[in-house]
Design a protein around this nucleic acid. Structure first.
Length: 424
RNA sequence: GGAGGCGUCGCAUAGUGGUUGAGUGCACCGGUCUUGAAAACCGGAGUCCGGGCAACUGGACCGAAGGUUCGAAUCCUUCCGCCUCCGCCA
């Protein structure tokens, strides 16, 4: 969340930065409540100071066995006043907090201004789009023909937007996961971590999914637990309420998890194939960084994610999200988009963001700076990268005229030497 | 699911209604001593929210929320978390 002190001091400029996101987030109600709360707080604290002092006097009087009944009577009145004020202050505090939780992060000044995804900026492109002497098919078509993807049976088990991977398809999914993990662990120096796929509401509030986006989450009926929409949630929350050792920053984690999203509101969109499923696999990169380095860390993290696509030799581009398309908690985001020949378009496969101190403030994650002052860390994360979409991209970019799919060379050591997927 | 135990300032602990402005040990920071270090000794240190140009100063915080009281780490209620044992189980 944003710092209430900064909002108080720079209301106008923060308001204008917020409005770059598009929908109006008004700070006025917040400021009014804050002012009211401060007045009441001052009053209550004065009363409490008075009471604390009198309590000492009463104790002293009782010790020498003198009568304190007049003071006690007086303090009964003071305590009654306090008892009236405190709940009012508490409910104002709660309301203020609630409003703060619903205000998104401020876009960084380097973020291109814009309304929606059409205003996103292509930063760079990599690779050569494959050319085929036949009509390229989409991954659903390719996968079903090879009997490695089965959406019909998945629908029987769970409904739409689920997939079953079969035969060498299941094997390929596993190979991609292992390959991504190994690159980030061995080459990029991330620490491997394995986490729960179910988390409590507090964790989701920490990273920003709650309270505003509950409808996107799968929730357990009998327990206060949610299925994670991304590994970002458990991994970032590992350090909730902690003071991190400055010498160990940046901390870099890589984590494979399944991810679960309700995709409410995306009815009719990408209903086919692997692109937008309720359950998908992802290898996630998460960093905790010092504020002065966080934007450089974002560049590095983005390059780390890009490298797995380069190694797979899949063409992609890097896009800077504009202010209107930015995620709720993010100050700056680069999307990686892979080329999908079957659709003749780019598809998002990774999203790399710097959340600055927004999540850290929600989660209370700090470190001591060079002056030994406590500061909030900056948190970052990015997909490195989504497995299902990488699977789809491989099928489309590596498809052959006869319907088979060649496998990227770098995967050979993970596929038990299988170089090509043919119909079983 | 059943029974029992426990949640105190980074860690470990003391503390059952009023000098608790939460003690002690370890760890931490500064100093003395030392060629340097260790040890020893001396001293200092928490977080959050306010007021003040500042020195400084008010309030809150002992898992959480309520309650009793002039006054709560301490008493009462509810909740949460952790541990141990039993049951069930991959």
């Amino acid at each position: 969340m944003l710092d209430i002190k900064k909002i108080r001091e720079n209301a106008a400029s923060i308001q204008s930065e917020l409005s770059k996101r598009g929908p109006r987030y008004s700070l006025q109600g917040l400021l009014d409540k804050d002012k009211k709360r401060k007045e009441l707080l001052l009053k209550a604290e004065e009363l409490k100071a008075k009471r604390n002092k009198a309590s000492e006097e009463i104790a002293a009087l009782k010790k020498i066995k003198q009568d304190a009944s007049q003071l006690i009577q007086e303090m009964q009145g003071v305590s009654a006043e306090v008892k009236a004020l405190d709940p009012e202050i508490n409910s104002l505090t709660e309301e203020i907090n609630e409003e703060l939780l619903n205000i998104p992060n401020l876009p960084d000044s380097s973020v291109p201004a814009g309304k929606d995804e059409k205003d996103n900026q292509v930063i760079r492109e990599w690779g050569i789009k494959p050319s085929f002497d036949f009509v390229a098919r989409d991954h659903t078509d390719v996968g079903e023909t090879l009997d490695i993807l089965d959406f019909k049976t998945a629908a029987k088990l769970s409904g739409t937007r689920f997939a079953i991977l079969k035969n060498n398809g299941a094997m390929l999914e596993r190979a991609i996961i292992s390959f991504f993990l190994d690159i980030h662990i061995q080459k990029h120096g991330y620490q491997e971590i394995w986490v729960p796929f179910l988390v409590n509401p507090q964790s989701l509030q920490g990273t920003g999914q709650l309270p505003k986006f509950e409808s996107e989450l799968f929730k357990c009926r009998d327990d206060e637990l949610y299925l994670i929409p991304t590994a970002e949630v458990p991994v970032t929350n590992m350090h909730r309420d902690e003071i991190l050792d400055a010498a160990l920053l940046p901390r870099k984690y890589v984590c494979y998890t399944a991810c679960f999203r309700r995709e409410a509101g995306s009815y009719g969109k990408d209903t086919r194939g692997l692109i937008r499923n309720h359950q998908f696999n992802k290898v996630e990169l998460v960093k905790f960084a010092k504020p002065e380095n966080s934007f450089q860390e974002l560049e590095d993290l983005t390059h780390d994610a890009e490298e797995v696509l380069q190694l797979l030799k899949i063409p992609y581009r890097v896009v800077a999200l504009c202010s209107g398309d930015l995620g709720f908690s993010s100050a700056k985001t680069y999307d990686l988009e892979v080329w999908m020949p079957g659709e003749s378009r780019y598809r998002e496969i990774s999203s790399c963001s710097n959340f600055t101190d927004y999540q850290a403030r929600r989660m209370n994650i700090k470190y001591r700076d060079d002056n030994k002052t406590l500061q909030f860390v900056h948190t970052l994360n990015g997909s490195g990268v989504a497995i299902g979409r990488a699977f789809a991209a491989i099928l489309e970019n590596y498809q052959q005229k006869d319907g088979s799919v060649l496998l990227p060379e770098v995967l050979l050591k993970y596929t038990n030497g299988i170089k090509i997927i043919n119909k079983a």
